[in-house]
């Protein structure tokens, strides 16, 4: 279980998170919605310990992330796959090396037969052609880079998957492919997922539950039906804006 209790974070004078309370139960996929710049990615980075909160607690499987020692944090990170917004693939390594780095077990990582087989397996799982493993990130399209990023996140068989805007910058067709992939991985791998997005339609398709971050706080959590029925003006404004957006409507 992932739990955030009263998490606060400021960068300089700018308050990003102002007391976030948020719980994700094992096995569920939650979409974290919100307009750009509201701190969704910052929240996600707190969960994996890339950012420490100024106040409050981030708990993963009961462990206080900000207080973990180096080795404990590394062990925790092996349980979490993180899909970065722009892939964050290593430019100087080919796809095989990029994905292989996600194998957390050192013995398996060092075993060339295992790592080649495992990388090929996840490359297939994310619907990429087998010959992509020898290519470099610069030779891939945006959608392919995102899928390699997902492959790297799942190759270590994580318990949790955190997606940071997996469909941003993609055309509607590729967005649909990625949403379908997230949905399929959730079903097939049974991982607990948090997907940060501002694409409401994608979130409705993929998530069991939704949460809306606004003004540094989670202002609503609930199912798709509860969101659609909400009278909260900020929720209504966010949903209406997204559904009126032609690019999202096409997705």
């Amino acid at each position: 279980m992932i739990e955030l209790r009263g998490v606060k974070k400021k960068f300089g004078d700018q308050v990003i998170l102002d007391g976030v309370d948020f719980v994700v139960q094992d096995g569920e996929t939650v979409a974290l919605l919100g307009p750009s710049g509201t701190g969704k990615s910052v929240l996600l980075k707190h969960i994996i310990g890339l950012i420490k909160p100024d106040a409050g607690q981030v708990l993963v499987d009961g462990l206080h992330v900000a207080k973990l020692k180096r080795k404990e944090l590394a062990q925790l990170r092996y349980k979490i796959g993180y899909v970065f917004q722009n892939g964050a693939l290593f430019d100087s390594d080919n796809v095989f090396e990029n994905v292989r780095l996600g194998i957390s077990d050192e013995t398996k990582y060092s075993d060339p037969d295992y790592s080649r087989e495992r990388v090929a397996q996840v490359i297939k799982l994310v619907n990429l052609p087998a010959d992509v493993i020898d290519k470099y990130p610069s030779e891939l399209s945006g959608g392919m880079r995102k899928r390699v990023g997902i492959a790297r996140a799942i190759v270590g068989e994580p318990k949790y998957l955190l997606y940071d805007e997996p469909t941003s910058g993609l055309d509607p067709v590729n967005s649909d492919i990625i949403d379908g992939l997230v949905e399929r991985l959730s079903d097939e791998l049974g991982v607990t997922g948090i997907m940060v997005t501002h694409d409401v339609r994608g979130a409705f398709r993929v998530a069991d539950r939704l949460a809306l971050l606004s003004g540094g706080k989670i202002i609503m959590q609930g199912t798709q039906e509860e969101f659609l029925a909400s009278e909260n003006p900020k929720v209504k404004e966010f949903l209406e804006r997204d559904f009126e957006n032609p690019s999202n409507a096409a997705a």
């Binding site: 994996i48 890339l50 092996y78 964050a88 430019d91």
Partner: peptide, 17 residues
């Protein structure tokens, strides 16, 4: 610096490396 701004260093840390 480029690896930092393109989150490649964050990615490495997120993999426990």
């Amino acid at each position: 610096g480029t690896m930092r701004v393109t989150e490649q260093i964050d990615a490495l840390e997120s993999l426990g490396r």
